[in-house]
Computed example of a mutant assay.
Amino acid sequence: MSTPGSLNGRNRILFPTLPRGEVVATFESYPEAQEAVDVLARADFPVDKVSIVGSDLKSVERVTGKLTWGRVALAGAASGAWLGIFFGLLLVIFSPTVSLAFVLAALLLGAGFGMLWGIVSYAVNRRRRDFTSVQQVIATSYSVLVDSELGNRARNLLASGGAEQQQPAAPAGWTPPAQPQHPSDPPPAPPAAAPPVAPPVAPPAGNDNPPAPSA
């Protein structure tokens, strides 16, 4: 009987959950999303808080060519030759008395068996599948997610290409205020600088005598 702790740990491995956070950028291809994460990494951003999520997955099968007897025989011989070389070298490593001629014989035997197996398989499946293809699972879009408290910093880094934006210098004599209690509260603005004081205006020169009083 399994304990609840081990069962919960196994469920976390078998059924992973989607990452939660804030979408800072969306791209059409995975290399573009990977380049965005590289930009954040070069800027010393905590990349362990970043995830790439692909949306709208599609299975794509690309046809690479048509199967023929010659291509089937050549592909089977190549795969069999690699397998023969592997076993031949393995025996040479563990049995120093075995000569390299055994490796050549294993190569030829592997190529022959591989060619035979490929021809037999093609003869059986020829009616159902007469072409070669490569299957891929791709997404329509790729989103870069970060933790909510790091969303603004990630956007600024991606917009500036990884360079941190410098904050404007504070005026002389201004002390930074206390940090807000909640991260979402905007910080207070610095006080406005005092207007310059105009110098005193001197009296006009050339008239030193005061005016005479009237009778």
Rank of each mutant, 00 (worst) to 15 (best):
I52P: 00
D48H: 11
I93V: 14
L57H: 01
A81F: 01
V72C: 10
D38V: 10
F94W: 14
R42C: 09
K58M: 02
T68S: 10
R42E: 10
I85N: 12
L74M: 06
T64L: 04
T97A: 15
I52Q: 00
A41H: 13
D56N: 03
V98F: 11
D48N: 12
F94T: 14
W69V: 10
V47E: 03
R42T: 15
G54F: 00
W82M: 14
D38C: 11
L100R: 07
V72D: 09
P46A: 07
L100G: 13
A36E: 10
A73Q: 06
L67K: 08
V92T: 13
R71L: 09
G80W: 06
L100M: 12
S51L: 06
R71D: 09
G76T: 03
R42P: 10
A81V: 03
V60G: 04
D38E: 14
V92D: 13
L91S: 12
L74Y: 01
I93H: 15
G84M: 02
V92E: 14
L90G: 15
I52T: 00
S79M: 15
G84Y: 04
A43G: 06
E61Q: 09
A75Q: 03
F94L: 14
V47S: 08
V63F: 03
V60Q: 05
F86R: 09
K66P: 06
L40Y: 02
D56I: 05
R62Y: 04
S55T: 08
L74H: 05
L83C: 12
L67Q: 08
T97M: 09
D48I: 05
D44A: 08
L89N: 14
V72I: 10
I85R: 11
S99L: 09
G76D: 00
F45C: 08
S51N: 07
G80R: 04
D38T: 07
L83M: 11
A77L: 04
S99R: 07
L100C: 13
L83D: 10
V63K: 01
A41P: 10
A43Y: 01
A73D: 10
G80Q: 04
S59T: 08
V98S: 11
W82H: 13
L67C: 06
A81N: 02
L100Y: 10
S79L: 14
S79Q: 14
V60T: 05
A43F: 01
S95H: 15
L90V: 13
T64C: 03
G65N: 02
G88L: 03
A43M: 05
I52A: 01
G70M: 11
E61N: 07
R71T: 12
V39R: 03
L89D: 11
K49N: 06
S59D: 10
K66G: 05
